[in-house]
C-alpha cells in the first residue's frame, strides 16, 4: 500500500490519566491510572499503522483519544492538520467526519432495534449536509454492496446476521462519511478463524480502493504484521518500539517486543522442540503505580541500575534501524538489505 508523504494524523505527547478518587462526601484524588503516558506518532495517507500490546497497555484508550471520545490530560491530536483535542460542537463534528471507528465486538456495537439500513445510514442523520435525504437509501445500498453484503438486506436487523457479516455492517457504517482515517480497535478478534481472513481482506481492498489510512489495534501479531506498514508496540501506556513491520518483526530491539514475538505460538509443529522462547515472569505492573525509570524493567532480564533511574526515551539509537525505548536495545550487525 503506497503511503504518500503528508501525514493525515499527527499525535504528539498524548497523555491520558484517569483520576483515582477516594471518599464519599469529599472526593479527593489519591492517584491516577496512567493509561496513555506520552505517545507520539504520525500516520500518512494510505498507510496502516499497527498498534500491538497486551491488555492494560493503553491501546484502546489511545483509540478513544484519537476519536475525541475522551479528552486527553495533555498533548495534541491533529487530524488533517486540525487540532481535535480542544475542538467543540460544530468544529468537532466537522473533524470527526474524517476519522471513524470500527469496534471489536459486532454483537454489542450495533443497535439491535435498528435495521441495518438505519445503522449504516445513521451518520447521514447526524451529518445532515453530507447527502440529501432522497439519495441516502441508495447510498446505503451501495455501501452494503461495497462491504460484500446483499443490498436487499437493508431492512433486516443485526441478529439476522453472523458475526462476520455484522463486522461488515460496522465497516459500512464507518465508510459512510468517506473518512480518510479508520481506527480499527481489534476488528477481527471476536470472529471465528475462517471468517477473520475474509474481514482482513475486505479492509485491505477498501484501503486500496478509497486510499484509506488505518490505525489497526490488535493483539494478534500475525494479523497486524500482514496488514501493517509500520507497527508500534505499547507497554503500560508508552510506545516502547516503533518501526516498519520488517524492523519490528525481523529486528526487534526492545526486550519486551522480543518476548512478545517469541511468545506467539507458531502454527507449524516442525522444529518446535528447538524453538527459542522468552517466557516473561509475572504480570504487567499496575498502570496506577508504574515502576520508576523504564516501565518494563521489573520483568526485564537486561535491567540494570540505570533502568530504574532514567526513563529511556523513544529514539533511534546508534547502530539501530528504528526507534526503541531501551537503554540496552538488541542491535543487529548485518546492515539492512535495502
Amino acid at each position: 500500500m503506497a503511503a504518500t508523504g503528508d501525514p493525515v494524523l499527527e499525535v504528539r505527547d498524548l497523555v491520558k490519566h484517569f483520576p483515582v478518587t477516594q471518599g464519599v462526601l469529599a472526593r479527593r484524588q489519591v492517584g491516577a491510572i496512567r493509561a496513555v503516558d506520552g505517545v507520539s506518532f504520525d500516520l500518512r495517507r494510505g498507510e496502516t499503522l499497527g498498534i500491538v500490546g497486551e491488555s492494560g497497555c493503553g491501546k484502546s484508550t489511545l483509540a478513544r483519544l484519537l476519536m475525541a471520545l475522551e479528552r486527553p490530560t495533555s498533548g495534541s491530536v491533529r487530524v488533517g492538520g486540525r487540532e481535535i483535542t480542544r475542538a467543540k460542537g460544530a468544529e468537532l463534528k466537522q473533524v470527526r467526519r474524517n476519522i471513524q471507528l470500527v469496534m471489536q465486538d459486532p454483537y454489542t456495537s450495533l443497535n439491535p432495534r435498528m435495521t441495518v439500513g438505519d445503522i449504516v445510514g445513521e451518520p447521514y442523520e447526524i451529518h445532515q449536509d453530507v447527502l440529501p435525504r432522497g439519495r441516502r437509501r441508495r447510498r446505503v445500498q451501495e455501501l452494503l454492496e461495497i462491504v460484500g453484503l446483499d443490498p436487499d438486506h437493508a431492512d433486516r436487523y443485526p441478529h439476522q446476521f453472523s458475526g462476520g457479516q455484522r463486522q461488515r455492517i460496522g465497516i459500512a457504517r464507518g465508510l459512510a462519511l468517506r473518512p480518510e482515517i479508520i481506527v480499527c480497535d481489534e476488528p477481527v478478534s471476536a470472529l471465528d478463524v475462517s471468517i477473520q481472513a475474509q474481514v482482513v481482506n475486505l479492509l485491505g481492498r477498501l484501503q486500496q480502493e478509497f486510499g484509506l489510512s488505518y490505525i489497526f489495534i490488535a493483539h494478534d501479531l500475525s494479523v497486524v504484521r500482514h496488514i501493517s506498514d509500520r507497527v508500534g508496540v505499547m507497554y503500560l501506556g508508552k510506545v516502547v518500539e516503533l518501526g516498519r513491520d520488517a524492523d519490528i518483526y525481523g529486528r526487534p530491539e526492545h526486550p519486551y517486543t522480543r518476548a512478545l514475538l517469541s511468545a506467539v505460538p507458531v502454527p507449524d509443529p516442525d522444529g518446535r522442540e528447538r524453538r527459542e522462547r522468552i517466557i516473561l515472569q509475572g504480570d504487567p505492573p499496575s498502570p496506577a503505580d508504574p515502576p520508576s525509570g523504564c516501565r518494563f524493567r521489573t520483568r526485564c532480564w537486561k535491567a540494570r541500575d540505570v533502568c530504574a533511574q532514567q526513563e529511556p526515551p523513544l529514539q533511534v539509537r546508534p547502530g539501530a534501524s528504528h526507534e526503541s525505548a531501551c537503554h540496552f536495545p538488541e542491535l543487529y550487525p548485518v546492515p539492512r538489505p535495502y
Partner: peptide, 17 residues
C-alpha cells in the same frame, strides 16, 4: 497470515459455518 503473502489477499474460506 504468512510473511510471503504480505500485501496480498489472505486465502479465505468463503461462506459461513
Amino acid at each position: 497470515p504468512r510473511i510471503d503473502r504480505k500485501g496480498r489477499e489472505l486465502h479465505a474460506i468463503t461462506g459461513l459455518p
